[in-house]
């Protein structure tokens, strides 16, 4: 099955979603800038969102086992939640900056062991 030759179906969506997810995960794991890490979080959440939307369509998924409106609504909720979480995380990063004068996450290593 060559994804590049087939018409766009569920798998394509899932692959994109997966790529976004992995990218986000890598971003979270490697970025030294705290804001970069937050961006990674956004990517992860949106990757999952993509999955949800894909699964919700009866055309993509199949008329018997599609998530339907549940999937769409979950995606909406997640977007809201991601925004809220980002806001909070930014506030925390700001607080961190106030205390450490940097947003380099490697500076946050006093607590260990």
């Amino acid at each position: 099955m060559n994804l590049l030759t087939e018409p766009v179906g569920l798998t394509h969506y899932l692959v994109v979603g997966a790529v976004m997810f992995v990218t986000g995960a890598v971003c979270m794991a490697t970025k030294r800038n705290a804001l970069g890490v937050l961006m990674g979080i956004e990517l992860v959440l949106n990757g999952a969102n993509l999955n949800f939307v894909a699964f919700s369509s009866p055309y993509l998924r199949g008329s018997s086992v599609f998530l339907g409106l549940d999937g769409q609504l979950i995606a909406l909720f997640v977007i809201v939640l991601a925004a809220a979480e980002a806001a909070v995380a930014l506030a925390i990063t700001l607080n961190f900056y106030n205390n450490h004068a940097t947003v380099d996450v490697d500076e946050a290593d006093r607590l260990k062991g």
Partner: peptide, 17 residues
Amino acid sequence: SEAALKYAVYGAGTAGI
């Protein structure tokens, strides 16, 4: 502040997963 940052990042990461 360090604790909060670690918690937030970690929590968000696992939430995403």
